[in-house]
Amino acid sequence: MESLFTWNFASEIVLSTFRMATPLLLVALAELYSERAGLVNIGLDGIMSFGALAGFMISYLTGNPFLGILAGALGGVLVNMVYAFCTVTLCAEQTVYGMALNIFAPAISAFIYRVYFGVSSTLAQATLMKTIAIPVLKDIPFIGPLLFNQTPMVYFAYLMVPFTAVFFNRTKAGLSYKSVGEYPKAAETLGINVVRQKYVACIICGLLAGIGGAYLTTCYVNTYSDGIVAGRGFIALSAVIFGHWTGSGVLMACLLFGFCDALQLKLQIISKDTPYQLFQMIPYVCTLAALAIMGAKKAGPKAKGKPYLREER
């Protein structure tokens, strides 16, 4: 256990924290965009699993992980359109539909994988995305090699954070976007097309969550398996609550959960005597503990979870 605090260990933890936090961050941002328009989507796990499959298939077939990411994004949007139609147009209950996605999307993914690769095939492997070092920044001593030698998707995810913050707080489009989640009636009277805005939110949500899923199979591991998402969608969901529906808050929450994940992987290697299952529990238990300590303040969009009917008074 003396090796716990060496430089090498710390740097590996930092490196893998950022890697582990990336899919969480992408998906948490997806949820943030969805909830800001008043749509609580608990189907993130489902969207991710379909994104993971689409990303894997395309990167396997073309050998190009970037096309895989693109396919994951499209797949995510496609799946989330089911949710969008049912919750926005039909005003069905959002949690129920999120749950429906969680059942539906993994079933389809498993089916497609099985039909294409056969039931008992050896694990197919796709190409992983290569890391790209950013020319000047990577030479910064200490943090340079850790933070600026990652896959492009990592940069994309972290750049989305300031973009999101500026969009929601400094632009007119962002403010009217938020108004849909706060008080859709008022937004409608100001000439904002609430229904269209909600559909846009669903597209963004599907896009980012699909990318988050595709990240798992194009940047993280090079195979697809059922249950690859492993509840990350729900951890991302808690990250949004924990981060109080802001871009920076979500980032901090995801880094915390990513750190837990990185730590448990490392601990598994260091301490072989302790049952590995106990370490694997760490991310889930930490998420719970973080939420329990924070409590749920009455924050977040006012109209989240509520269906919007134009005709209703």
């Binding site: 608990i42 949690t95 509840g231 729900f234 951890i235 969901l237 808690s238 609550i241 889930y284 238990v285 998420t287 719970l288 939420l291 329990a292 409590g295 749920a296 303040k297």
Partner: peptide, 12 residues
Amino acid sequence: RGLNEMIVSIML
């Protein structure tokens, strides 16, 4: 604590 019961029960 006012937590979302769905998230908690899934984590468990």
